[in-house]
Amino acid sequence: MDSAELLKEWEWLVRTELTAKLEAIDRHLEECSKKLSPFPIAGAEIRPVLLSSQHQGDNVLCTVTVDGDRISRAELNVRAPGKGGRSLRTTIKEQSPWKLKQVQDSVNHFQRVRDLYASLKSCGHSSQSCLRGCLEGLLGALLQTEAALTLPPNTTAQHIFNNNQKSVLKPELPEDVALYFHISSSLLVLTVLAVTARGGVREMKDIESNSWMGALFEHGSVIYEVTGQLRVSASVPWLAAVLALLRQSLELTQDLLDKVKVFDGVSSV
């Protein structure tokens, strides 16, 4: 294909494909911005989700409201895992929410997505290299926004027990029980750990994973071992909608990038 034909193909791509796909991406990002926010969405109806462990009897029964980057309200009824576990009740109130760092991180990456999209629109009819760079930047930021929600953070039992967010629980849990919330794609996951004090332990082995059974760690100058763990999860509808919008935007951006790459090295564009 000679340079004149390549130029004609490029002009068609910019005039039709680029315009149509940018408009679709813009719609998806605008809808996503209405749901992915660091603050409660004014006027939005956020329904609580139910966390329960049907396969474990009544060990956990909780209603939790995930509003923006926080758990704004929760009623938690938990039987501590392990032998002879006690029944515990605690709450989270709107004035002292439990913050979800993964959602906060996703919001921060999404702000970069919006900035990069604005740059992409401004360079849409300029050179191929400019357009490719903008698309690669947008694709990377979209992937980071998605990954913040889909990749559970690595943490340790010690971190869970030292987490200063446990103070938002009213009443606070006993010293030998802790709970931990995290996001896994569209799921809100609650983990409850129970520990037993151990004496004469010289070598500690805390575990950075999603299963902490048997982990040893120091808390308040005492060595503890994780002797009980249970986990429950439930789907959060607005998180599922956010991930669907992000993936649609990713597919459109990747498709555009692939088509722009075809013109690598073509001097006339």
Rank of each mutant, 00 (worst) to 15 (best):
M1F: 00
L7W: 11
L7A: 01
K8A: 06
T16K: 14
E17Y: 07
L18E: 02
A20M: 08
K21T: 02
H28Q: 12
L29S: 12
S33R: 09
K34E: 14
K35Y: 12
I41M: 14
E45S: 15
P48Q: 08
G68L: 05
R70V: 11
S72T: 15
E75F: 00
V78S: 05
R79G: 04
G85K: 15
R86N: 14
Q95M: 04
P97Q: 01
P97S: 05
P97A: 08
S106Y: 07
H109P: 00
R114P: 01
L120W: 09
S122D: 15
S122M: 12
H125T: 15
S127G: 09
S129Y: 11
S129K: 11
R132L: 01
L143W: 08
Q144D: 10
A147W: 05
P152C: 03
N154P: 05
N164F: 12
Q165F: 06
V168I: 10
L169P: 02
L179M: 02
S186K: 10
L187Q: 12
V195C: 13
R202H: 04
K205Q: 13
I207R: 13
F217P: 11
F217Y: 05
S221P: 05
T227F: 08
T227N: 15
P237K: 14
W238I: 13
L239R: 01
L239G: 12
A241N: 06
L250M: 14
L252Y: 05
T253K: 03
K259V: 03
D264M: 00
G265K: 11
V269R: 05
